[in-house]
Design a protein around this nucleic acid. Structure first.
Lengths: 337, 337
DNA sequence: GAATCCTGTCGAAGCGCTTCGACAACCTAT
DNA sequence: ATAGGTTGTCGAAGCGCTTCGACAGGATTC
């Protein structure tokens, strides 16, 4: 294993000079710099991460806590995680993958040991038990998701309230009057992960203004659960002509069931999905949807974290404006026959 | 930040004693141990990761390289990643998340800097350019996936050859004679990720023995691509009564299309999917499937890596035996009318 | 009762790096 | 020409831990 000292000797300079070439924290003459860089190349030198961390008390690692549960739509999680990792690298940071399993202890362990310089938390609950810890350490952090009390925290999330409102507007504009929301699994609501409730609130309040009637039903993913949920909805509100689906694993089942019952999309009923674009375009009907911008969320989280690590960067809530893309699953409400 | 020295002082012992209490590498009297442990508790001490890594030249970190591409079924990746992280923790290791983006350089960087003690590589190609590097470092590693040349490497994977054979056997036993394989996206084959080819090889050779006729078509995910692929298959082999689907995002489209064409599953055609159980049970038909044991793969990879880190543990190829679960999507071939 | 072995503890060296202060050597301005 | 700044480099201290050898004192052996 090549050390700084060996590079220094090879280049005929002192160790500190090599260090300054590497960090750029002091000016170095062009000649010396080149000589050092050549030595680094020739010897294949890589700075030792541990020694660096010890001396500088910066690990250049960002911790990312992902949820252990799998009831949140997993591809979105993966996409965010990969976006975080990729982006962190462009700033010279690596990413440590923590699962929610350890809970608050993981936060203590990581901040206490100096393993990471900062952390990103995904799947934040409204009243998350990790938040007090984050507030009291001076280690920068960013949440992906929105807790009840955001004071002293930086959060990045899709504006789910506006997302709900957007869905209501689109359906109202098309003349629909009775709409149903296929929500996330009951567990998501029980856990108070916020985003589902915020969507619903936004949708409900806008619906009130627009004179839409809203029926909301949580729904586990899959075909059977969806069948049951749909039957109940149509039983209670036979005149329902618009659907907003928040649970992705309910989308395709819903489409299949509607087809099976002879309800044409979008002629008889309209469907809006809240999902990544990829899902919307690959479904059996090209879906009108509000995109979940996973990459963007990951990127923003990293940007804000880096800003905090560099000293500028304040606590703030960053809500991404939703965008609704009209595709082939929504159309004018059928005129009452 | 609390240091070892402070704990030592608080407990009235020397620093080395505290260190030995922590590591258990020398015997410590019960009294001293308890005093030290109480001090650790009271002061809220966490060993500094960097200092530890520097002094011991072990970082207690495992690097996990995940593919950047998203054409491999992503939930499986996520599941493996989480299983790796969870399992690594039970052995005292954290996981560093690397994306494939950096390519071989990431391997150099991580081994060179001592950032991680070992690494797990996912999505290994048949002739992966990272393999030579792995062979020449003495850092332990485990691959998830199977390259062409496994000499000097430890690999964990589902036995995709046997998986293919199993599918052929099941369909043959039910009396099917003409079967079609809906493969992964063409990009997967071009990239030579092996597993798709191995499935096909296993399926073909067993089919030959059993007298099955096989038609294989790669297929992008999604409804449109599947529609096209299915049309071509039925055009070329109208008598096809069995389908083996390896691309998960083609499963639901296939079922929808068959339904739409009036072909009943499993009365007219049988469908086997190669996918996680969750997908198989949530589809619009409960699918007969061969499970992709993501958790198991992650767990095994970690176990073998730990074994290598501890000195015992040899290079070997670990193939997980496939299991076929019969559900509602396969049945006897329709008797030729 | 001396020689030997454990057992439990300590001190000190050092892991490879960053960073601070010092200081030559040179360059301006006056 | 001289006081004052710059610029580029070095030496040394120290980050917090592990680990090795040393050794005191008690237990075991013959």
């Amino acid at each position: 294993m090549v050390t700084l000292a060996e590079v220094a000797q090879h280049a005929g300079v002192s160790a500190s000079t090599v260090s300054y070439v590497l960090s750029g924290k002091r000016s170095i003459s062009a000649g010396t710099r080149q000589r050092v860089e050549r030595s680094i190349q020739e010897l294949g030198y890589h700075p030792n991460a541990g020694a660096r961390a010890l001396a500088s008390s910066r690990s250049n690692i960002i911790a990312l806590m992902v949820p252990l549960r799998t009831d949140m739509y997993v591809p979105v999680m993966m996409e965010i995680a990969i976006a975080v990792a990729t982006h962190a690298r462009t700033h010279g940071y690596d990413v440590l993958l923590l699962t929610g399993e350890e809970g608050p202890d993981a936060v203590r362990r990581v901040t206490g040991s100096g393993l990471a310089d900062a952390m990103i938390l995904m799947d934040v609950e409204l009243d998350d038990e990790r938040l007090p810890l984050l507030r009291q350490t001076d280690q920068p952090s960013v949440l992906i998701g929105l807790p009840a009390d955001t004071s002293g925290l930086t959060c990045v999330d899709l504006d789910f309230g506006a997302t709900g409102a957007l869905c209501a507007e689109h359906l109202a504009l098309l003349g629909h009057r009775d709409i149903a929301v296929i929500g996330e699994a009951p567990a998501v609501y029980e856990r108070h992960t916020g985003f589902a409730e915020r969507t619903l609130d936004g949708l409900r309040s806008r619906s009130r203004e627009l004179g839409l009637r809203v029926l909301h039903r949580p729904c586990e993913g899959g075909y059977d659960a969806m069948a049951l949920t749909l039957a109940r909805i149509l039983d209670e509100r036979p005149g329902t002509t618009g659907f907003v689906v928040q649970n992705e694993s309910a989308v395709e089942p819903l489409l299949a069931l509607l087809r099976q019952q002879g309800r044409a999309v979008p002629e008889d009923v309209s469907v809006i999905a809240i999902c990544p674009d990829q899902v919307a375009t690959q479904a059996s009907v090209r879906l009108t949807s509000v995109a979940i911008p996973a990459q963007e969320m990951g990127r923003l989280a990293v940007e804000h974290l880096i800003a905090k690590l560099e000293g500028h960067g304040k606590d703030e809530v960053v809500l991404i404006a939703p965008e609704l893309t009209v595709r082939a699953s929504t159309g004018p409400a059928p005129t009452a026959a």
